[in-house]
Amino acid sequence: MTTWITVCDTCKHDDWNAETQPQTDGELLAEAVEKAAIGAEGIKTRRVSCLMGCSHSCNIAIQAPGKLAYTLGKFDSSEESAMGIVEYASKHAASETGQVPFREWPKAIKGHFITRHPPVPDNE
Protein backbone atom coordinates (compact mmCIF):
# COMPACT_ATOMS: atom_id res chain seq x y z
CA MET A 1 0.00 0.00 0.00
CA THR A 2 1.28 3.45 -0.89
CA THR A 3 1.70 6.28 1.58
CA TRP A 4 1.37 9.66 -0.08
CA ILE A 5 3.23 12.80 0.88
CA THR A 6 1.18 15.72 -0.41
CA VAL A 7 3.06 19.02 -0.46
CA CYS A 8 1.34 22.38 -0.74
CA ASP A 9 3.29 24.15 -3.46
CA THR A 10 1.62 27.54 -2.92
CA CYS A 11 2.75 27.96 0.71
CA LYS A 12 4.65 31.13 1.45
CA HIS A 13 6.32 32.17 4.68
CA ASP A 14 5.49 35.64 5.98
CA ASP A 15 8.76 37.04 4.65
CA TRP A 16 8.33 35.63 1.11
CA ASN A 17 8.90 38.23 -1.59
CA ALA A 18 7.83 37.59 -5.19
CA GLU A 19 10.43 40.05 -6.49
CA THR A 20 13.37 38.30 -4.86
CA GLN A 21 12.12 34.70 -4.72
CA PRO A 22 11.03 33.21 -8.06
CA GLN A 23 9.65 30.09 -6.35
CA THR A 24 7.28 29.84 -3.42
CA ASP A 25 8.52 28.29 -0.21
CA GLY A 26 6.14 25.40 -0.91
CA GLU A 27 7.70 24.77 -4.32
CA LEU A 28 11.13 24.63 -2.71
CA LEU A 29 9.89 22.22 -0.04
CA ALA A 30 8.20 20.06 -2.70
CA GLU A 31 11.46 19.82 -4.64
CA ALA A 32 13.37 18.84 -1.50
CA VAL A 33 10.78 16.21 -0.52
CA GLU A 34 10.64 14.77 -4.05
CA LYS A 35 14.41 14.45 -4.07
CA ALA A 36 14.48 12.86 -0.58
CA ALA A 37 11.75 10.37 -1.58
CA ILE A 38 13.64 8.96 -4.57
CA GLY A 39 13.93 5.23 -3.96
CA ALA A 40 11.79 5.27 -0.78
CA GLU A 41 9.75 2.08 -0.90
CA GLY A 42 5.99 2.53 -0.61
CA ILE A 43 6.19 6.34 -0.77
CA LYS A 44 4.85 8.60 -3.48
CA THR A 45 4.77 12.38 -3.60
CA ARG A 46 2.43 14.85 -5.19
CA ARG A 47 1.91 18.58 -5.19
CA VAL A 48 -1.34 20.44 -4.64
CA SER A 49 -2.13 24.10 -4.78
CA CYS A 50 -3.26 24.98 -1.27
CA LEU A 51 -3.89 22.80 1.75
CA MET A 52 -5.57 25.82 3.41
CA GLY A 53 -3.08 25.93 6.27
CA CYS A 54 -1.61 29.33 5.45
CA SER A 55 -0.94 30.24 9.06
CA HIS A 56 1.23 27.10 9.34
CA SER A 57 3.15 27.22 6.07
CA CYS A 58 4.82 25.18 4.70
CA ASN A 59 2.30 22.33 4.89
CA ILE A 60 2.28 18.66 3.96
CA ALA A 61 -0.17 15.80 4.40
CA ILE A 62 0.70 12.15 4.94
CA GLN A 63 -2.04 9.75 3.88
CA ALA A 64 -2.76 6.15 2.92
CA PRO A 65 -6.02 4.26 2.42
CA GLY A 66 -7.37 2.80 5.65
CA LYS A 67 -4.83 4.59 7.86
CA LEU A 68 -4.65 7.66 10.05
CA ALA A 69 -3.80 10.77 8.05
CA TYR A 70 -1.72 13.69 9.29
CA THR A 71 -1.24 17.32 8.39
CA LEU A 72 2.10 18.84 9.34
CA GLY A 73 3.31 22.38 8.87
CA LYS A 74 5.76 25.13 9.74
CA PHE A 75 8.53 23.57 7.67
CA ASP A 76 11.40 25.23 5.90
CA SER A 77 12.64 23.83 2.61
CA SER A 78 15.82 22.31 4.03
CA GLU A 79 17.16 18.88 3.20
CA GLU A 80 16.85 18.03 6.91
CA SER A 81 13.11 18.80 6.89
CA ALA A 82 12.59 16.84 3.68
CA MET A 83 14.50 13.81 4.97
CA GLY A 84 12.50 13.87 8.23
CA ILE A 85 9.21 14.04 6.32
CA VAL A 86 10.16 11.09 4.13
CA GLU A 87 11.46 9.08 7.08
CA TYR A 88 8.20 9.63 8.96
CA ALA A 89 6.17 8.73 5.85
CA SER A 90 8.17 5.49 5.57
CA LYS A 91 7.29 4.63 9.17
CA HIS A 92 3.65 5.50 8.43
CA ALA A 93 3.77 3.14 5.43
CA ALA A 94 5.17 0.34 7.59
CA SER A 95 2.51 0.81 10.27
CA GLU A 96 -0.73 -1.15 9.98
CA THR A 97 -2.76 1.81 11.28
CA GLY A 98 -0.57 4.71 10.21
CA GLN A 99 0.27 5.54 13.82
CA VAL A 100 3.97 5.87 14.54
CA PRO A 101 5.16 5.76 18.17
CA PHE A 102 6.54 9.11 19.36
CA ARG A 103 9.91 7.57 20.19
CA GLU A 104 10.31 6.71 16.47
CA TRP A 105 9.52 10.19 15.14
CA PRO A 106 12.43 11.83 13.34
CA LYS A 107 13.63 14.95 15.14
CA ALA A 108 12.90 17.06 12.04
CA ILE A 109 9.12 16.51 12.30
CA LYS A 110 8.64 16.91 16.05
CA GLY A 111 6.58 20.01 16.77
CA HIS A 112 5.20 20.15 13.23
CA PHE A 113 1.97 18.15 13.65
CA ILE A 114 -1.19 20.17 13.09
CA THR A 115 -4.00 17.62 12.69
CA ARG A 116 -4.68 13.90 12.71
CA HIS A 117 -7.65 12.43 10.85
CA PRO A 118 -9.13 8.97 11.26
CA PRO A 119 -9.42 6.87 8.12
CA VAL A 120 -12.59 7.24 6.11
CA PRO A 121 -14.94 4.34 6.92
CA ASP A 122 -14.96 1.70 4.20
CA ASN A 123 -18.66 1.00 4.72
CA GLU A 124 -21.79 3.07 5.17
Rank of each mutant, 00 (worst) to 15 (best):
residue 108 A to N: 07
residue 37 A to I: 01
residue 78 S to W: 02
residue 109 I to A: 01
residue 83 M to N: 09
residue 50 C to M: 07
residue 88 Y to R: 09
residue 75 F to P: 00
residue 97 T to M: 11
residue 68 L to T: 14
residue 50 C to Y: 07
residue 74 K to V: 05
residue 63 Q to P: 02
residue 95 S to T: 10
residue 33 V to M: 04
residue 117 H to P: 02
residue 102 F to N: 06
residue 40 A to D: 00
residue 77 S to N: 14
residue 53 G to S: 12
residue 48 V to G: 08
residue 60 I to S: 04
residue 55 S to Y: 01
residue 86 V to A: 00
residue 58 C to Q: 04
residue 50 C to I: 06
residue 34 E to T: 07
residue 64 A to P: 00
residue 91 K to Y: 02
residue 37 A to C: 00
residue 87 E to I: 02
residue 118 P to K: 06
residue 119 P to G: 14
residue 83 M to D: 07
residue 88 Y to F: 15
residue 50 C to D: 13
residue 68 L to A: 12
residue 47 R to K: 14
residue 109 I to Y: 04
residue 83 M to R: 13
residue 108 A to H: 08
residue 107 K to W: 03
residue 113 F to E: 11
residue 70 Y to M: 11
residue 92 H to Y: 01
residue 89 A to R: 07
residue 39 G to A: 00
residue 63 Q to T: 13
residue 48 V to P: 08
residue 89 A to G: 03
residue 61 A to D: 06
residue 40 A to H: 08
residue 60 I to R: 05
residue 113 F to N: 06
residue 51 L to T: 06
residue 106 P to Q: 00
residue 51 L to H: 07
residue 116 R to L: 10
residue 92 H to I: 06
residue 113 F to D: 01
residue 118 P to N: 09
residue 90 S to F: 10
residue 77 S to L: 08
residue 101 P to I: 02
residue 87 E to A: 15
residue 107 K to D: 15
residue 116 R to C: 11
residue 43 I to C: 04
residue 63 Q to D: 08
residue 117 H to T: 15
residue 115 T to V: 14
residue 108 A to P: 12
residue 61 A to E: 10
residue 33 V to F: 09
residue 79 E to L: 06
residue 103 R to P: 11
residue 98 G to S: 05
residue 110 K to G: 14
residue 71 T to P: 04
residue 72 L to W: 01
residue 57 S to Q: 01
residue 69 A to W: 02
residue 104 E to R: 13
residue 71 T to D: 11
residue 60 I to K: 04
residue 87 E to P: 05
residue 58 C to T: 13
residue 41 E to D: 11
residue 78 S to Y: 03
residue 100 V to P: 05
residue 76 D to Q: 05
residue 115 T to R: 03
residue 43 I to T: 10
residue 116 R to Q: 14
residue 73 G to Y: 06
residue 61 A to L: 04
residue 120 V to K: 11
residue 99 Q to M: 11
residue 108 A to D: 07
residue 34 E to K: 13
residue 85 I to D: 00
residue 57 S to F: 02
residue 92 H to V: 14
residue 33 V to P: 12
residue 76 D to A: 15
residue 44 K to T: 12
residue 111 G to A: 12
residue 56 H to T: 10
residue 99 Q to G: 08
residue 35 K to C: 10
residue 53 G to N: 05
residue 92 H to W: 03
residue 96 E to R: 04
residue 77 S to C: 11
residue 52 M to K: 05
residue 122 D to V: 15
residue 45 T to S: 07
residue 74 K to P: 00
residue 63 Q to A: 14
residue 96 E to A: 13
residue 80 E to I: 02
residue 38 I to P: 12
residue 115 T to N: 13
residue 69 A to C: 09
residue 43 I to S: 03
residue 65 P to I: 12
residue 124 E to W: 09
residue 105 W to R: 14
residue 96 E to G: 06
residue 109 I to C: 08
residue 96 E to D: 11
residue 114 I to M: 14
residue 90 S to H: 03
residue 115 T to L: 09
residue 102 F to S: 10
residue 90 S to K: 10
residue 70 Y to T: 14
residue 60 I to D: 04
residue 56 H to F: 09
residue 62 I to P: 03
residue 59 N to E: 06
residue 39 G to R: 01
residue 64 A to T: 09
residue 62 I to R: 00
residue 123 N to H: 11
residue 71 T to V: 15
residue 42 G to N: 08
